[in-house]
Nucleic acid binder design. Structure first.
Lengths: 106, 106
DNA sequence: TTTTCATATGAATATTTATACATATAATTT
DNA sequence: AAATTATATGTATAAATATTCATATGAAAA
């Protein structure tokens, strides 16, 4: 009996956050839920592209959406995501300062 | 005077972690530094491919390498990375369980 | 009930990223 | 110094992902 190839669940989260537009949307929504028009107005990006990004984020569980009158509101699905963003910003700053030349690492 | 386009530092971290092989390497090295042969033996992946992945991780500051005799040893550059991995695994599990059908989110 | 506003979808193309394979380098052992 | 071991590099191709543009949908206002 073959072991079924395990799904790496966190890989999806990294994939979602590894696109500049998606990451910016997530960071924007950390400040609170927003409708699509508000999101579009925050960036200089075409509506259909934002819509595609929102769908990816929703389908992968990072965002949740609901309708409110004329608008669709998007919000972060789970606050643990906010932690990831904060911690990675700090880590990113440290990592970015590491010199990776050979001499510095002997 | 134009504002220079800001560099999103954490984006690189997410990009590095969003590849299955790179993520597996990082997770392996959380258990401690290893030389390249050891890393290769842990997976069923060609040597040049592992070598490319290691280079990407090193050039983006996630790994540090040094020579020890015949071998090159790779290790995680900063322990804050370990936090990211742990937290994202937990978050990933939560997010993965969220239903994103319309009805569930009204 | 037609028009408008807000958002989503599909599909073609462009761009980026991953992989494979041949070969190179550099330290080590013989 | 020749052969071996360990690792890296270059480049072509393949695969995945992002972007664009035209169009569709669906609720609300006129």
């Amino acid at each position: 009996m073959q072991k079924k190839p395990e799904k790496i669940i966190d890989l999806n989260v990294y994939k979602m956050l590894s696109d500049e537009i998606r990451l910016k949307i997530i960071k924007l929504l950390i400040n609170g839920e927003k409708n699509v028009s508000d999101i579009i107005n925050n960036f200089n990006i075409d509506q259909p592209l934002i819509s595609h990004k929102l769908r990816e984020l929703r389908e992968n569980g990072l965002l949740i959406s609901y309708r409110s009158g004329k608008n669709i509101i998007y919000k972060i699905s789970d606050k643990s995501l906010i932690n990831i963003i904060k911690i990675t910003e700090i880590a990113g700053n440290k990592i970015d300062k590491i010199c990776n030349c050979v001499e510095c690492n002997e």
